[in-house]
Design a protein around this nucleic acid. Structure first.
Lengths: 106, 106
DNA sequence: TAGTCGTATCGTCAATCGACGATATAGCAT
DNA sequence: ATGCTATATCGTCGATTGACGATACGACTA
């Protein structure tokens, strides 16, 4: 698996509105949510489970068995390759933020 | 088109190794390349044209007619929604950079 | 043990994707 | 006008995706 494939796979894992929504839910969640996700996204339970499986396969989320239910949590570190790639493409939005200045001070 | 859909569409546009490769080529290119892309990605000309169309539809690249050929160039600004979304998920890698601190100083 | 709740998996279907060859189109050059 | 080169579009095919209902699995509770 080349880094290019890795980036593409991460992008594919995010390439669905339902999955974006799930990630956002997990971001806003205190730490662990389970079946509440199903109601929030408004799809069938089996469909949501499939989306969770895809996100888990990409390591974007982790599913920890917590007694009777499963505790899903974000694993932002897995997105690093994609984040780095996108960051390398986007100089303007946000302006000079972290990088002092590449070479042009003007 | 909600912002969620917009992010998903951008991710989908990047959800293919060939398209990642194309974007990388454009990033490294001086400014304009055309048919060289076909050789670089190693797919049929029609297939590459289709990938270029998808990237163009997502506004990630622009295709400007330059005489007999087409000049493709990156349009990083189009990725802003996706970049912002991913940045909101990745606090650790890079450390506290731009945002002073959301609410928790510790 | 039996029941219940939450989650995962299976089977199916329509829709979309990715790849290709063939073909059309547009802009030089001769 | 003719031909050439570069790009786009069309039609097709197999593979994958996304959705669902039905069902299996696992873990508590009574």
């Amino acid at each position: 698996m080349t880094e290019t494939d890795q980036i593409a796979d991460l992008a594919k894992a995010l390439a669905h509105p339902a999955r974006i929504r799930i990630v956002r839910l997990l971001l806003a969640a205190p730490g662990c949510i389970g079946g509440d996700i199903v109601e929030a996204v408004g799809l069938a339970q089996s469909t949501v489970s499939e989306h969770l499986r895809i996100l888990k396969a990409a390591a974007i989320i982790t599913g920890e068995i917590d007694g009777p239910r499963v505790c899903y949590a974000l694993n932002p570190a897995a997105l690093a390759p994609l984040a780095t790639f996108i960051a390398s493409l986007t100089p303007p939005p946000g302006g000079a933020c972290c990088l002092p200045d590449q070479k042009e001070t003007a």
